[in-house]
Amino acid sequence: MLVVSAGAIRPARRVLPGFRLTLGYTLFYLGLIVLIPLSALLLKTFTLSWDQFIAAVASPRVVASYRLTFLAALVASLVNALFGLLVAWVLVRYNFPGKKVVDALVDLPFALPTAVAGISLTALLADNGWVGSLLAPHGIALAFNPKGVVIALIFIGLPFVVRTVQPVLEDAERELEEAASCLGATRWQTFRYVIFPSIAPALLTGFAMAFARAVGEYGSVIFIAGNMPMVSEITPLIIIGKLEQYDYAGATAVAVVMLTFSFILLMLINALQAWQRKRSGAR
């Protein structure tokens, strides 16, 4: 729990009222909605013996789902890092008609319910869909297999990268680029050695956020994945499957593995953001 000592409050700020009330309410609500239910997850795991736990989290089908979930999330967030950087760059540096609309559209994956994204991408990529019907004659199938999972995760993760890189690019000091070019750097060298290092922390943060979201994503993926055990079944679906068989302990064990991974990613993102703040503060 948090230890709040009154002595830690700086005297200059004690003028404002409401510290106890708002902090108290914050902790109460946080405990009620987040911490107590999450601790239920951990306590439920302790009802399993170690062997049962391992059997639940390391069965071949579950391990196959980890591999798919992490690999698909990794590929999707790498694609997002590349194209997200490009989109952010184009939005900040260039002018073209309809730029404001495109800028607003980048947030679509945040606003569009995941189930809608899922059925829509499936309709596009199925053999009779707009895109699928063009690819099917060439023997390319992007729906109902792991490729579909990657595509759904690209959709979900794109705004994370764009929205973390964009403000940093906007704040970037053009003087540095001018200096680089005056010193004889080519445009590519300027990008590689001047611009890129300054946006790298933001890009990494966006990548990690997209990755974290992709690992836990459920709604958009299940429609397009085909959900074949060992092949295209993601870990969240394993949890749902175990729940439907009333295997609460097994579902909890797999959930704890996912949660542990989420915690590690959250810590990593926090560290990255601290690094990013330090970078921009030091300049």
Partner: peptide, 25 residues
Amino acid sequence: AKFEFRGKAFLTTLIDLPFSVSPVV
């Protein structure tokens, strides 16, 4: 945002926590 207290960074992390938990979990 208006007060300084010990554990503030930790509290902010906890507030962000639901974002990184899978919806299914």
